[in-house]
Design a protein around this nucleic acid. Structure first.
Lengths: 151, 151
DNA sequence: GGTAAATCCTAGTAAATTACTAGGAGATAA
DNA sequence: TTATCTCCTAGTAATTTACTAGGATTTACC
């Protein structure tokens, strides 16, 4: 039940992007320098966020990334699902009649997995990027030394 | 953010044990037959549950396992934590001053991990084994064909 | 037009983790 | 004494993770 580095790094990167975004796009180089992340790896995470429609890219010199929508319209759930795939703790928790096992409507544990899933979803969907950026400004995280931080 | 087979199989096994427990202990052989699980693997899971104080074992012929406490005193959280280790989505979510990163009190993402952690904990700690056994009896899961079910 | 600064795209890969299997030692009821 | 159990430690194939590597392409600017 651990989040991978994709989710951890990716959310950090997106908060950073939101915080530093203005008219001009923010480059991977600058994000990875501030957040102490591998440029090459971050590149892949940004590709996932782009595919999910959370960021837009500007190619060429002076290019980079900008948020594709308003900060308030992006939830932590959107970000984590883009990077981690489904957040369901067990696959059968979903209601898809295809992937799920046949016994699932008689299955007691399914009830458990579904409740865990619901509580995670509710939580991540109610935290929005603008809240985090606000919080970050308050805490003056800009100068935060990220060296060695894995979260 | 997936639960491993330890948590999935182990919870199923423990519900089965609770359902079939009486004066006589329940053997791994019988649980694994009903639940379609590997005996050898289940052995290891039961050892973890025993170490966590959730079940007691009776050695020798006619032996097996019994719950170490009342069903109502065992939560899904107890079971999953025994089998999966901490359920925290990210290590720094904990308050341990040792393992956590130094920057953690200025760290915005920590707030996110902590909220996810809290919601998972609240959910799994409020579901108790007796509720699941009750539910299982209602649904008559005894005859449920578990062949190939991975959850 | 050339160059530097970017994103884009695909592969490869070492390390860790998962999900088991295997082999036997020890305990106990019949 | 034997069959049926738990207990304990190792081993291991497959998968996943967390990157790194090598370019191709696009674009601003001189």
């Amino acid at each position: 039940m651990k989040l991978s580095t994709k989710g951890r790094y990716g959310l950090r990167a997106l908060i950073d992007l939101a915080q530093y975004s203005s008219e001009t796009p923010v480059s991977i180089t600058s994000i990875s320098a501030r957040q102490d992340l591998s440029e090459r790896y971050l590149e892949q995470l940004m590709a996932m966020l782009k595919k999910a429609g959370l960021v837009k890219s500007v190619r060429g010199a002076g290019g980079g990334y900008v948020l594709a929508k308003d900060m308030a319209a992006i939830s932590v759930g959107d970000v984590l699902r883009a990077l981690e795939g489904s957040l369901e703790p067990v696959e059968c928790a979903g209601l898809e009649p295809e992937g799920g096992c046949k016994a699932s409507d008689q299955c007691v544990t399914k009830y458990v997995w579904q409740r865990i899933n619901d509580s995670i979803s509710r939580t991540v969907d109610e935290i929005r990027l603008d809240q985090l950026v606000e919080e970050s400004r308050k805490k003056q995280c800009a100068g935060l030394d990220r060296t060695g931080c894995k979260n």
